[in-house]
Design a binder for these strands. Sequence first.
DNA 1: CTAATGCCGACCAATGAGGTCGGAGACCTG
DNA 2: CAGGTCTCCGACCTCATTGGTCGGCATTAG
Lengths: 174, 174
Amino acid sequence: MLGLSKKSDYALLALSYLATNGESRTVRTREIAERFAIPAELLAKVMQRLAKMGWLASSPGPSGGYTLAVSDTSITVGDVVRAVDGGSALTQCMHSPEGSDCEQWANCTIRGPLGFVNERVQDVLNHIPIRDIRERATPASAESELVSIVVPDHSAPAAVRAGASRSHNEGDTP
Amino acid sequence: MLGLSKKSDYALLALSYLATNGESRTVRTREIAERFAIPAELLAKVMQRLAKMGWLASSPGPSGGYTLAVSDTSITVGDVVRAVDGGSALTQCMHSPEGSDCEQWANCTIRGPLGFVNERVQDVLNHIPIRDIRERATPASAESELVSIVVPDHSAPAAVRAGASRSHNEGDTP
DNA sequence: CTAATGCCGACCAATGAGGTCGGAGACCTG
DNA sequence: CAGGTCTCCGACCTCATTGGTCGGCATTAG
Ligand code: FES
Ligand code: FES
């Protein structure tokens, strides 16, 4: 469905919480889970993976928990999604350079162009540090200067404009 | 896993084939299926949905098949994904404006920023017409002028640069 | 009429996401 | 120092979604 998994969602939620509300204290998984009303055990698993990535420092025992081990500007949402969700490419064929994954590598005609699209999406994801994923909505830094997409009119007549603008967020959930 | 579904992949494949190789003749589903070595029945289902969207004209009977009914610049990959895959938003909460879908709408702190990221991704997808998804790799139009992402150095030190560049396409498939 | 094609719905199988369990180690109490 | 408790940790399980299949019906060229 081209969407973040719950795990990625939880990971971003937790990281944002740690970056904002956990200056230099250990935060228990339970605390975050209750704060956001999400299953604690599943979040625990996510936290483990984040810890294994080296982004969180864990300390067991009572008064234990997790602490953000790196700067909140050194991880991007792309990194998080890739780590916790297992790859964030649009198609399989973009993981391995020699098409060992994708079946129709041999006679696929859209690999090149799609790869380009993929890179653009990855660029977007890779340039939003988790610092910008915080309580504040639409962070000023990102809004104004971080990422801006320039799209000249190209060869697209009226139809494209209509279709593109209509379809920003419009979902049919039958 | 944040990736296009097979159905979207097939749809793009078929549309690209029709745009390139089906100037003004009816193309059978079987032909496309065999060309790309994909299951014919599933592709048929995808074709039906594309036809129902009005993008393909269908004609039953012998010597029947499909024809591209609209200009190859009036549909974008965003449109295709959205139609065939059912919504292309990063999270559920971005479909409905009042959080009727997402559970933790009430105490979610990342909705705003993530929504912004979502819009950027959607922008990318909505500005690539299927004309640019063709046999040619990395179409010149898209490469040079269509979409360009400008990202000034912002507040991100060396770590971000390293992380971002490292993680373009690198998948761990355990 | 007959054959070839699209059209439609129901059906089945496998993958993986979401969720759960019991353990191992570290702090705290006495 | 010993026990209890609280935490992380890794393996396990279940089920919804996706990918894929089948058969029957309508439509049209030959
Ligand atoms: S879809 Fe994998 S090579 Fe085209
Ligand atoms: S994830 Fe849906 S509201 Fe935040």
